[in-house]
Design a protein around this nucleic acid. Structure first.
Lengths: 148, 148
DNA sequence: AAATTATTGCAAATGAAATTCATTTGAGCT
DNA sequence: AGCTCAAATGAATTTCATTTGCAATAATTT
């Protein structure tokens, strides 16, 4: 999906919810999209506030991230200790994560068969799934060869 | 595994690490074991402090939960928002969770095939897994019939 | 039993996230 | 364009879970 298209959809979403289309909100989509796929809010705050003009304050960033989650462009993907890592998922197919506990590297993968098994499990328990998250913590190839 | 056996192993663990075997530590294992399989630290703090004698203070509980994680008797299983739900896993086989977002009910399940697929994925990425967590959020059978 | 070292409990500090509130801005209306 | 009003913003403050510093205490070591 094109970023412009996404922004249009976000505008629609906002209007439909009775929210307002503001500069901050639209600019934040840009910023988040160009930040890279995974981010933590506090990093984003620092990064955004170091940019030319103040796109948005810390509170607005927190609020907008929530909105974007509601909209579905963003997802909380990794929760490790007290850190929350978000991911920009707009238009991206669903996937899971391998997280290197040494260097923090994040590897994405997708397995249709895991999805299918989950569906079966949910059916079995008459459970209606909304979303899921599979986090595999471990050591990546690079780190397993390093001596540190 | 018997609780006494577990406590013995925990003592060994402490000694081997150069930590001390204290009353609080041993009593906290008892308390956690009898609390039920899933718990949040704050609940535990309240529950424990309402018991006869003060087994341990809030800080000691936090510190001991960390120790027990290191020892392997406890695991952080669900992270939702800013809540962390722990599980007493000593001697329990590995499993994943379905979490009802309406009533908070937690259903455990285990699928050998999911484990196998994960191993394959890790092999593919030359990733050495340490642990993993699959959380499926959704609505349980009971809640999907309720009108609330 | 004295010496050594880790643990405890309290209070204070931390840090992420939410919230308050005065001010500003967007959207609809004329 | 100007008016109105509800919603959004920014700055500061608060909340809440978790962590930490430190003096007192308890567990090991000798």
């Amino acid at each position: 999906m094109q970023l412009d298209e996404l922004k249009q959809k976000f505008e629609q979403f906002l209007k439909q919810k009775g929210y307002k289309v503001t500069k901050s909100r639209l600019e934040l989509i840009d910023k988040i999209a160009s930040y890279g796929s995974h981010f933590e809010i506090e990093q984003l705050v620092v990064w955004v506030s170091n940019q030319d003009k103040g796109v948005a304050s810390r509170s607005t960033i927190y609020r907008t991230v929530k909105l974007l989650q509601e909209f579905g462009a963003i997802r909380e993907v990794i929760k490790l200790g007290n850190r929350t890592i978000y991911e920009f998922i707009a238009g991206k197919p669903h996937h899971e994560h391998l997280i290197c506990v040494k260097c923090g590297k994040i590897i994405e993968f997708y397995r249709e068969d895991i999805e299918e098994i989950q569906d079966k499990v949910c059916e079995e328990y008459k459970f209606t799934p909304i979303n899921h998250r599979l986090e595999i913590f471990g050591v990546c190839d690079g780190c397993s060869h390093s001596l540190v």
